[in-house]
Amino acid sequence: MKTINNPIFHFFLAALTVVCLPLFLRSGVLASEILIFGLAVAACNLLLGFTGLLSFGQGIFFGVGSYVAGILLTRYQIPVPLMLLLSVVLGALIAVAVGWLSIRRQGVYFVMLTLAFSQFFFFLAYSFSGLTGGDNGILDVPRPVIAGFDFTNLWSYYWFVAVIFLAVFALMLRTTQSTFGRTLSAIRENEARASAVGFPVRAFKIAAFAISGAVTALAGALHAMLIGVAPLSSIEYHTSEIILIMTIIGGSGNLFASLLGAGTYMLLADVLSTIWPRWLLLLGVALIVVALFMQRGLWGLIETLVSHITATSKRTPNAATERPLHRQADGGKA
């Protein structure tokens, strides 16, 4: 299991996905959306899988990023890199505020608070229609032209997204491997002990929120440029829900699982929606199956398969003694 749960291997898988999507998909929108939601889902996973925080507020950050792109690009002609930077900063700031208030409560009450914030920000966006365009959203959000490179074509925009995706994905992998990431895991495993051992748990949770909000807002901004609109639906509760569902489908143990979850959801939605307009029903069934039979998500399924395969191929007389030795050898890296 150590071999397939190695961060460098996960980065390789992500890079492979980036290269393969254009080969197998005809729609540049779908391919770009997979990467964009891959980011948002990885950010959600940082909270759910690594810190143990089930946040229904991810749509807030996604919507904020989307509006930052819409407003700054259509009304102020701010250069795209600066706009992306501002969306990241604003996403982080709002996530700090939402996180700071929500983590005051635990468990169900925490979840309820994030849900309440999600509703609050939706009505805020809906009410301030002068700024957000209300129901119509902000139209004609342009794709970038940076230093003579034109990314307005769909597939060239895909590569623009791909580079950002890989850079951010690498940074997030690094984050999960850092002392910070390990401390988040410790908080997820045993919050009381993490605190007793000396960690200011709240500060760590807020920092996790900040990173999650920053990355999700970045995804929102990229999405607005992709579809050319900053719609009201981006900040709707439904966006939070989709991001969470993708996170759970993929599995919450590692970040590549998030890309897997986003990809699977988007592809299923794409295929099913052409077959049957009531496809969301089937998605509901798929989710029930995941919740009942594959609680570790698709990645958990892959892990199980790989361990079956390696177990059968390694069935040697001294297999029993091999295991503890193997563990011991891992000690230094763990």
């Binding site: 401390t183 895991s185 051992v197 200011p200 920092a207 000690g331």
Partner: peptide
Amino acid sequence: FPNLSVQENLRLASQGRTPWQALAP
């Protein structure tokens, strides 16, 4: 921390004395 290794449990316990360092991702 049941899913973390013994060594990682102890490293975290020791890191707890200088926890703000660990905030750097």
